[in-house]
Design a protein around this nucleic acid. Structure first.
Lengths: 193, 193
DNA sequence: CACCACTAACTATGTCGATAGGTAGTTTGC
DNA sequence: GCAAACTACCTATCGACATAGTTAGTGGTG
């Protein structure tokens, strides 16, 4: 159900094609919800058939065409409804911590490599997110600027603030992972004297 | 593939039935990897057919019977191989942060309720994990004691240390989420002052 | 004008996981 | 002595995701 609402979040800003949405899933929303295009296209059709979206054929070049979707009132209501409904929490499935719990089975060097990869992975994410926050703060994000332009003035501060707030949350997750993995490296050293 | 390795992690300690494993997935391993019994039973069969496990019919009561699985050498090799192979990181799918990113669409009170639920959820987990760490530290966990008894003396310190280390990682994740959600509550107040 | 990257959309297959059942025997407690 | 709870195992269905394709038109570069 979250894919659907990620699509809503993008489409309430401005009408888009499946391909446009797909690109957003690579960059912006992709940071909190990833989806391949093979999931996006069928979901758009389903949403249209349920009356939550409306698609419009628009020409592209001389012979080409594309389908642009916009959110109906019913769709907006569904999105707001999801926003106002508390989440159900999925039970954990965390391969990195699963592995860590049984690390005595690993070769110490492989375990070190694993933790170093964990650090690298989260350092990479951290870098990306810092960039994103910077973009928001100095207003250089095209998507966000369109979103701000299409929104009532009163909402603009909120839109920025919640975006930054979200990225800060992701960043503190990543920082926690990095600290944890560094402690793990020390632990491996200690246990393998 | 992680379900398979979670099963290995339990079965290398001692032979178990599907039902025993299922119970472990509710309590111990379930904290890092959840699985319903409807996934466990077929996976055990698959692993047996691949020669990674061997099942043995043992009587239970007068007419009942159960199937106890133990890991073959091939299975142990497969587990060690997984332990020594770096993880591939799945792209994020985080409904809580997805929602937070578009919180201007929510009713402020609903958003507050959401964040309070987030705090409660993670506070609950934190409590469970603190308990688990205590159990490990004062040696009152039955499963862990069997595992320690079946392990070479040299490994016992490692087994305990990696378990505690894992729970500490989970705990710092939960703490980060709680801090983030508290900041969110303040932010909502400020923006809707 | 050929080439290539990009835009646009879609399909097909397989696994994973959630959910919700069903059957049969066993043990415990009142 | 029987109901309830637990042990044990299994199936069936559905949606979510990953992966890997296919087809067709567009726009820019050498």
């Amino acid at each position: 159900m979250s894919l659907r609402n990620a699509l809503f979040a993008l489409l309430v800003v401005e009408p888009m094609t499946g391909y446009d949405l797909h690109k957003q899933f690579v960059s912006s929303v992709g940071h909190v919800w990833h989806a391949p295009d093979s999931q996006i296209y069928p979901e758009l059709k389903r949403m249209e058939s349920e009356g939550l979206l409306e698609g419009e054929e628009i020409p592209w070049g001389s012979r080409g065409k594309k389908r642009q979707y916009h959110v109906t009132e019913e769709g907006k209501a569904a999105f707001r409804n999801w926003m106002d409904t508390p989440l159900e929490y999925a039970r954990t499935r965390d391969p990195a911590h699963l592995k860590a719990a049984y690390m005595e089975w690993a070769d110490p060097d492989a375990a070190r490599a694993q933790l170093r990869a964990h650090i690298e992975h989260h350092t990479g994410l951290l870098g990306q997110w810092r960039e994103k926050v910077k973009e928001i703060e100095d207003g250089s994000s095209a998507m966000l600027n369109r979103r701000l332009a299409n929104s009532p003035k009163a909402d603009r501060e909120k839109i920025n603030a919640y975006k930054v707030y979200t990225y800060e949350g992701l960043m503190s997750q990543a920082e926690a992972e990095i600290i944890w993995a560094r402690r793990g490296l020390k632990l491996i050293d200690r246990l393998n004297g």
